[in-house]
Amino acid sequence: MKKLILVIALTLSSLTFAQNKKTQEMTPEQQAELQTKKMTLDLDLNSNQQKEVKTIFLEQAKKKQALRAEMKAKKESGEKASSDERYKKEIEVLDNQIEMKAKMKKVLSPEQMKKWETKQDERREKIAKSKRKVLNKQE
């Protein structure tokens, strides 16, 4: 169960900008607002893009909140996920990533999209690196 939570958490974090614990305690609306502001600074978004991106981030934040609540309930009940359940969750997370990327392509210019993808790749690398450190410490 811990590995499933780790995989889902790492995958979801690649969908959004790096968040600290304070951000996780915020409402989905607050998270979406912060992510939009950060993205505006990084990519110089215009006002229409800001509105559309905020809508996308709000939807993602609400999905993450629901997933977190579901995972917390399962953990508290001591329920362990079967391999089929883990597979379905991972597929769901990947589908969400694909959907997010498609939506962002509609909103961002080609240059902005390239820069956004580069930043996403950097975040994935950072997460993978920290995951390797954690795994090395456990051994």
Rank of each mutant, 00 (worst) to 15 (best):
K3Q: 11
L6N: 10
L6E: 13
V7G: 03
I8N: 01
I8G: 02
L10R: 06
L12I: 12
S13W: 00
S13R: 05
S14C: 00
S14R: 00
S14D: 02
L15D: 05
L15W: 03
F17C: 12
F17R: 10
F17W: 05
Q19K: 13
N20E: 15
N20Y: 05
K21Q: 15
K22Q: 10
Q24K: 01
P28R: 08
Q30T: 15
Q30Y: 11
Q31V: 14
Q31E: 08
L34A: 12
Q35K: 07
K38W: 08
M39F: 06
M39H: 06
T40R: 01
T40E: 08
N46P: 11
N46G: 07
S47E: 12
N48K: 14
Q50G: 08
K51L: 13
V53K: 06
K54R: 04
I56D: 11
F57H: 07
F57D: 14
L58C: 10
E59H: 09
E59M: 14
Q60F: 04
A61K: 01
K63G: 01
L67H: 05
L67C: 01
E70Q: 06
M71L: 15
K75R: 00
K75C: 05
K75L: 08
S77H: 10
G78M: 13
E79F: 05
K80C: 08
A81P: 00
A81Q: 02
A81I: 07
A81M: 08
E85L: 05
Y87V: 10
K88R: 13
K88Y: 07
K89R: 10
E90W: 06
E90L: 14
E92M: 11
E92F: 13
V93T: 03
V93N: 04
L94P: 07
N96D: 15
Q97I: 02
A102Y: 05
S109H: 02
P110I: 00
E111C: 02
K115L: 12
K115Q: 14
K115D: 14
K115I: 04
K119I: 10
Q120L: 03
D121E: 06
D121M: 01
R124F: 04
R124A: 09
E125V: 14
K126T: 09
I127L: 14
A128S: 10
A128V: 08
S130Y: 09
K133I: 09
K133C: 06
V134A: 11
K137A: 15
Q138N: 12
